[in-house]
Computed example of a mutant assay.
Amino acid sequence: MGLDQQTELSRDEIDALLGRHETGVLSLARGDEPYAVPISYGYDADDRQLYLRLVSTPESEKRQFVRSDAPARLVVYEEGDGIYESVVAIGTLEEIPREELTVEHVEQYGDAKRPLFEIWGQAKSDLDVELYRLDPETLSGHRIFLDRDSVSQ
Rank of each mutant, 00 (worst) to 15 (best):
residue 1 M to T: 11
residue 2 G to F: 04
residue 4 D to L: 11
residue 4 D to P: 04
residue 8 E to K: 10
residue 14 I to W: 04
residue 17 L to K: 04
residue 20 R to H: 14
residue 21 H to C: 02
residue 25 V to Y: 05
residue 26 L to P: 04
residue 27 S to A: 15
residue 28 L to K: 00
residue 29 A to W: 09
residue 33 E to D: 11
residue 33 E to H: 08
residue 35 Y to E: 07
residue 36 A to Y: 02
residue 37 V to C: 07
residue 41 Y to V: 01
residue 45 A to L: 01
residue 47 D to T: 09
residue 49 Q to E: 10
residue 49 Q to I: 05
residue 50 L to V: 11
residue 50 L to R: 08
residue 56 S to D: 12
residue 56 S to N: 13
residue 58 P to W: 03
residue 59 E to H: 09
residue 62 K to G: 09
residue 66 V to W: 05
residue 69 D to Y: 07
residue 70 A to C: 04
residue 72 A to E: 05
residue 76 V to T: 04
residue 80 G to A: 09
residue 84 Y to A: 14
residue 85 E to H: 04
residue 86 S to A: 11
residue 86 S to E: 05
residue 89 A to V: 03
residue 90 I to S: 08
residue 90 I to H: 02
residue 92 T to A: 15
residue 97 P to G: 12
residue 99 E to G: 05
residue 99 E to W: 08
residue 101 L to N: 03
residue 104 E to G: 13
residue 106 V to C: 01
residue 106 V to N: 00
residue 106 V to M: 03
residue 107 E to A: 13
residue 109 Y to R: 02
residue 109 Y to G: 00
residue 109 Y to P: 00
residue 112 A to Y: 00
residue 114 R to D: 02
residue 114 R to I: 00
residue 117 F to K: 12
residue 118 E to T: 12
residue 119 I to F: 08
residue 120 W to A: 13
residue 122 Q to E: 12
residue 122 Q to A: 14
residue 123 A to Y: 03
residue 126 D to A: 15
residue 126 D to V: 06
residue 126 D to R: 14
residue 129 V to A: 15
residue 130 E to R: 06
residue 133 R to N: 00
residue 135 D to C: 01
residue 137 E to L: 14
residue 138 T to P: 02
residue 140 S to T: 15
residue 143 R to W: 02
residue 143 R to T: 02
residue 143 R to V: 01
residue 153 Q to A: 14
